Simulated assay, not measured.
Amino acid sequence: MNGVITAIVVVKFVILLLGGGITYIAFKAYRRTGEDSLRVLGIGFGVITLGALLTGVANQFFSVSLARGVLINSVFVAFGLAVIMYSLHIQR
């Protein structure tokens, strides 16, 4: 089980780096263009990234079960994807 925990930590770290990068680029593009859809897109990716971070921390430091962590992470992913979908629908 120790190898699985290490793999989870590594994958969560990669998600944090990639999600943080996408969120940063989306907000940078929003500041440059002023397009609301890019701001909302950044928020959506930020929610997904935050969910991965919080569930990883909850599992490692607060003894939240893996199953409960997966459920919480899935809620963040679903909400983040809904925000991303909305960002693609916004028209100026």
Rank of each mutant, 00 (worst) to 15 (best):
F13I: 10
E35S: 07
V47Y: 09
A29G: 08
T33N: 02
G34L: 11
L18H: 02
A78P: 02
I43N: 06
A82E: 04
R92T: 06
R31T: 03
L53K: 01
G51I: 10
G44H: 03
A82C: 12
L18Y: 03
V57N: 07
N59K: 05
G44K: 05
V75N: 02
L71Y: 11
S65N: 07
R39W: 00
L38W: 06
I90D: 06
G80E: 09
I15M: 10
A82R: 07
F13T: 14
L16Y: 06
L50Q: 12
G56P: 04
G19C: 07
F76W: 10
V9W: 10
A67I: 13
Y86V: 14
A52R: 01
I43G: 04
V9L: 14
G21C: 11
I72R: 12
G34E: 06
F79Q: 01
A58V: 00
I22V: 15
L38F: 08
E35V: 02
I22F: 15
T55L: 08
V70N: 13
L17A: 08
F79I: 15
I84E: 03
G69K: 07
L38I: 08
Y86D: 07
G80N: 10
R31W: 04
G56R: 09
A67Q: 13
F27C: 00
F79W: 03
F61A: 14
V83G: 01
F79R: 00
I84K: 03
I90V: 14
F79G: 02
F62C: 05
L88S: 02
I8C: 00
Y30F: 14
T33K: 00
I25N: 02
R39Y: 04
R92Q: 10
I22T: 10
G69R: 07
V14E: 09
V83Y: 01
A67G: 12
S87E: 12
V47N: 04
I84G: 02
N59E: 13
H89L: 07
L88C: 01
I43R: 07
T23W: 00
S63Y: 13
G69C: 10
F45Q: 01
G21A: 11
V14L: 15
V10R: 06
G56N: 09
V40E: 00
F45V: 09
V47M: 13
L18R: 01
R32F: 14
E35R: 09
F61T: 09
F79L: 15
I72E: 15
S63M: 13
E35Q: 11
F61I: 05
S63G: 05
R68W: 14
V11E: 08
V75F: 07
S63N: 14
R92Y: 04
V10H: 11
R31L: 08
R68V: 15
L38V: 08
Y30T: 04
H89V: 08
I15W: 03
V57K: 06
T6A: 09
T49P: 12
F13W: 09
L17K: 01
Y86N: 11
R32N: 15
I48C: 11
G69Y: 07
F13Y: 10
R92V: 04
L54T: 14
